[in-house]
């Protein structure tokens, strides 16, 4: 699958990518950028500017109308239905609404990416505990998500996104419902993952947070990339 081209050392690359939804906003127009492996970037813009759309294109929840997207060496246009699950295992995704399984424990939720990948029981236990330890929820492993606070649920979502050690992690408004203090905690977690080599793309409209952190920031406005600020 992998092609040894000049772009091989880029983790995410968009080339003139357009995506439009019939009769509604939130599309993208001719977006081009790239992220190096181990890079961390914020994606900002008003709601409807296309942040979620961009992340969905990276995670192959949507496909573009035009342009080429490469993620971790894969040309996404060439990934068919059969390979899609395997590709998704390489991309950890975090959502504002957490998307946890309400009837499973925190442990089982975090274990899910490993279970679907066929990892052995002992290895699952080890890795899930490590991930939960990392986000500070080891003691809540047996709890159900509904019994946790919003910030804790978000951390469960983060643990799930990183437990299989994907090279790319995407986060869509991960701090959307959290107070500033919790938001900073979450960002600190992301920074730590970034330090061990994970490529992170974080969509947020929390400009205050973005200002405080010296991180590359891509800005979308009405579907166009209008800013690429590097610290």
């Amino acid at each position: 699958m992998r092609e040894q081209t000049g772009t091989a050392h880029e983790m995410i690359r968009f080339e003139n990518v357009s995506k439009s939804y019939p009769g509604s906003q939130g599309g993208l127009h001719e977006v081009s950028f790239h992220l190096e492996p181990g890079e961390m970037a914020f994606l900002t813009g008003h709601s409807g500017a296309g942040k979620s759309t961009l992340l969905k294109l990276v995670g192959l929840l949507e496909r573009p109308n035009r342009g080429q997207i490469r993620v971790n060496g894969h040309n996404l246009a060439r990934i068919g239905r059969r390979q899609l699950p395997l590709f998704r295992r390489q991309v950890g995704m975090i959502f504002q609404d957490h998307r946890l399984l309400a009837d499973r424990t925190v442990f089982d939720n975090v274990a899910l990416p490993l279970v679907v990948a066929g990892v052995g029981q002992a290895e699952i236990r080890r890795r899930v505990q490590a991930a939960l330890d990392k986000v500070g929820l080891l003691k809540k492993a047996k709890a159900l998500p509904v019994t946790l606070s919003g910030g804790e649920q978000q951390r469960v979502g983060i643990a799930r996104a990183v437990v299989s050690r994907p090279p790319v992690v995407l986060a869509d408004e991960p701090t959307g419902n959290l107070d500033p203090e919790l938001s900073l905690e979450i960002m600190e977690l992301f920074r730590q993952f970034n330090q061990v080599g994970v490529t992170l793309l974080i969509a947020t409209h929390d400009l205050g947070l973005v200002e405080r952190l010296p991180t590359r920031t891509l800005t979308l406005r009405e579907g166009r990339l209008v800013g690429d600020r590097r610290p």
């Binding site: 929840l61 699950p85 998704r88 995704m93 998307r99 399984l101 899910l112 679907v116 299989s164």
Partner: peptide, 16 residues
């Protein structure tokens, strides 16, 4: 349905 969506999201195959 929701569970299936989440499993697909984290890379669960059709067979799974």
């Amino acid at each position: 349905r929701q569970e299936i969506e989440i499993v697909k999201l984290v890379g669960g195959s059709h067979a799974f």
